[in-house]
Design a protein around this nucleic acid. Structure first.
Lengths: 208, 208
DNA sequence: GTCTATACAGGGATAGAC
DNA sequence: GTCTATCCCTGTATAGAC
């Protein structure tokens, strides 16, 4: 239907360029350390133009966050219907969670910052609730596995969920530091990390 | 030797009041969101006075960070000499790590932020190196446990260390959110959390 | 050591032409 | 929709009196 864009150099329209620049800068430097001027410069637009499209700096930030959230939210869907055993499903879940984040480092940095920080802003509470719902979904998957007897029934399902998510998040956030200090075999091999960690979580670390 | 201080209301000298105020504000709001004026107001001194004692905002921040690091660093010491089995030692380690952070939320927030973020600042790299050394110490404790046969030898010791630290850090950072969403039994009982998590890590989650 | 006053840069946001 | 120019405020930092 629409004509092919007459490729100007940017080739995406201004709003998108602003959103991309903002995502990048906010993710790297944090909200307060980024100025509208910096975003404008990187997006090749004027400051005033940004304020034309977004009511305020904060609302631009919220837009960026929402885009990131939409992108990451529906990862878990479809997992409930898989046929394989629960251990496999949990492994797939952990792996999917991890690679999604590694593939979109900016979006994940932004979301994590807001989820781990305790904000009073209503718009952001929504994101935290999103996360809470996803967490609950993981928990209930684990509960099913317990009913089926595949997972120990004396464990709190939430503890298991925390273990899976926590280790993933830690890995993502500290990967770069680990790479520097060498000696850590899984630092630049997320599959290796994932395999070993799930082995530990599933089977424990004590010798038998 | 020294005379008892003639208790003025503050009862600590200006520099300390500034450091305390700064720690509190930086921990809660982050570096960029805190202004010298805000610190001055809370500490009951003038802006200029802060700049008299600290060369710049950044150097004040570094001072606060260093104080926090000194306080938290030598937690692990003495653990190598304990007599009990490795499983107990690791449990004590995890527990100590956790309660230390819960008892000093501001210091831990500040340190975590800087450790998890990838900074280029040389002064801050020092803190990250500190953390790296502590991490290495935990790892080598685990390696000893493997040599003794108490812990599975097919596991990478670093994976075990990551699992312990990651779950603790996640717990600390998300405790408040968990408390809101109820249904999470260990949200306001860190001992319960610690016990259950170590049970999971030591024994795994699969039924047998 | 502590203050008041001030310099000066950069921030967010608006006005108005094109 | 996009720009240039501008407003006003707040931020860090300094000067100089006490």
């Amino acid at each position: 239907m629409s004509e092919p864009q007459q490729s100007k150099k940017p080739c995406v329209d201004a709003v998108d360029r602003v959103l991309i620049a903002a995502e990048d800068l906010f993710a790297t430097c944090g909200y307060d350390a980024v100025s509208i001027s910096a975003i404008a410069e990187r997006a090749n637009v004027s400051k005033a133009n940004i304020f034309h499209h977004f009511q305020s700096k904060r609302s631009l930030y919220i837009s960026v966050l929402k885009a990131a959230a939409n992108h990451s939210t529906m990862l878990l869907m479809g997992l409930e219907e898989t046929q394989s055993g629960y251990a496999d499903r949990l492994t797939m879940l952990a792996n999917g969670h991890l690679t999604n984040y590694l593939n979109h480092p900016n979006k994940s940095k932004l979301l994590m910052r807001e989820i781990l920080e305790h904000t009073s802003d209503a718009e952001i509470r929504v994101l935290q609730d999103d996360f809470g719902r996803n967490f609950a979904r993981v928990t209930s998957l684990i509960e099913k596995a317990q009913t089926d007897g595949e997972i120990r029934q004396d464990l709190d399902a939430a503890i298991v969920a925390v273990a899976i998510l926590a280790t993933n998040i830690f890995y993502i956030r500290t990967r770069e530091q680990m790479q520097e200090s060498s000696k850590i075999s899984f630092a630049d091999d997320s599959d290796l990390y994932s395999t070993q960690m799930m082995d530990l979580l599933l089977n424990g670390m004590l010798s038998r």
